[in-house]
Write a protein that binds this DNA or RNA. Structure first.
Lengths: 246, 246
DNA sequence: CGGCTGATTGATCCCGGTCAAATGAGGTGG
DNA sequence: CCACCTCATTTGACCGGGATCAATCAGCCG
């Protein structure tokens, strides 16, 4: 059941997993099939899952941006990671009894929903697929690890620069950048919650990045004016993304 | 090849995995066998792996404390997680080409080293084992997620209290607490690097916890005097540890 | 005894938080 | 077309948590 809009919508998944590990042709085909089965769409600004919900399906994101977050009782919120097209949202998650974080959308999104059966069928269909999925799990953990040092040890400017560098690399892999520009559907409030800063200070930090000639950010579009300089102020080292086939 | 000292050394692994998911008897036996094959020991204060090293073996920790960390070029360091007895250090890690973090020991440790063959044999030996290992991967990610909100959104007092609560729960599962006390082989420097604080401020924060009657910490031994109060100042909710069979 | 590592204390400074208000950009209903 | 509302961004003023610098103290080991 493939509508015209969806044709090719599985491309980001193939690109993402293929960057982590070489996919066999059979593997790529198995992914395409699995990901066409049950496609769900959601609007911007919606919660897809909430902390405490039962875990049932593995989600494979096809288009749009989302993020994982946690909140404290008193409302403080931390965005824990961004979810981009091609990302798989929690292999084997159905083994747990309750979600330990929430997912919200930043833009309209579409994703494939795989129940336990569908996911396990995909994992056993082809070794290269299983390996790529395991790699993605490891890569996603590595991202959270890098976020820990980001939040714990980088100052505001370095932190925001780092988040931008990471998003740029991840979007590049799935073909969502245009030169050094990309759509950036993140409000300053959201970005502040990802960087562990207040919105006020985040705003000032962005201005600092702008006036240093590192980025442009207008109308939800971000341009990196000097990637070299941005990377080095962030002390960004892309190895942790594991995007070059191990 | 089991020396007298090692008899029963696999217990923490069984307890840890068994807390995450019910293990069949065959599964428990398979774990015990796998974990006895090749046991490695290391002294306190050693690096077991460094960022950038090749990834070869999966490690299953049997005794002692270690931690994962990352450093920035200028020496700033962030401890990203503590590794306790029973923890598995990175299922499928051999699929990646280079480690994205380092591991160092806090005490003498012993761990089982599983090469790719041994690990895959274990995973296919018994479904309950494979599921438990996947659960552990998910639980470990959840821990990093919680650490993100810890570093990004909790203040110093809450942060340190949270780390203590988490360690207490994790040690309890593997039987390493004695009432509300446990061995705590972490220097203030290390704890500061886990909490994203300076050692000076960490020291003052510990004093605050002590003078509030929440903990005692002397001679590498920590006692929680008021678990209720400590949990609530930390806003600690143990669900993310997934220790109650899903 | 001297040297080393880790814990503690004091004094000072500054990054980033908080509070408050203004500006701007859509969006909607009259 | 305008009045009005909401949401996001921006700016200013002030404050405080935690960093930094520097010294002292306490064990421990050779």
């Amino acid at each position: 059941m493939l509508s015209k809009d969806d044709s090719g919508s599985e491309q980001p998944v193939i690109r993402r997993l293929g960057a982590l590990r070489r996919l066999s042709e059979a593997g790529a085909a198995a992914i395409k099939d699995a990901v066409r089965e049950r496609i769900v769409k959601a609007a911007a600004g919606e919660d897809l899952v909430c902390e405490g919900d039962r875990c049932e399906n593995v989600r494979v994101f096809l288009s749009g941006w989302a993020y994982r977050y946690k909140t404290l009782e008193d409302g403080r919120r931390q965005i824990v990671s961004f979810i981009l097209p091609g990302d798989t949202c929690d292999a084997y998650i159905y083994l747990l009894s309750a979600m330990d974080y929430s997912i919200a959308t930043l833009t309209p999104v579409s994703y494939a929903e795989l129940d336990r059966g569908a996911f396990e069928r995909l994992m056993s269909a082809d070794i290269s697929v299983a390996e790529a999925v395991h790699c993605e799990t490891l890569a996603e953990r590595a991202i959270r690890c890098e976020w820990a040092i980001n939040l714990g040890r980088r100052d505001a400017l370095e932190r925001v620069a780092h988040i931008i560098c990471e998003l740029f690399e991840r979007l590049r892999v799935v073909g969502l950048v245009n030169g050094n520009s990309f759509a950036f559907p993140v409000t300053q409030m959201d970005l502040a919650d990802a960087a562990g800063l207040s919105t006020v200070h985040l705003n000032r930090t962005l201005q600092e990045l702008r006036s240093a000639g590192l980025i442009t950010l207008r109308d939800r579009s971000l341009t990196i004016l000097d990637l070299q300089a941005l990377s080095s102020t962030a002390m960004f080292n892309p190895n942790y993304l594991h995007l070059h086939r191990g």
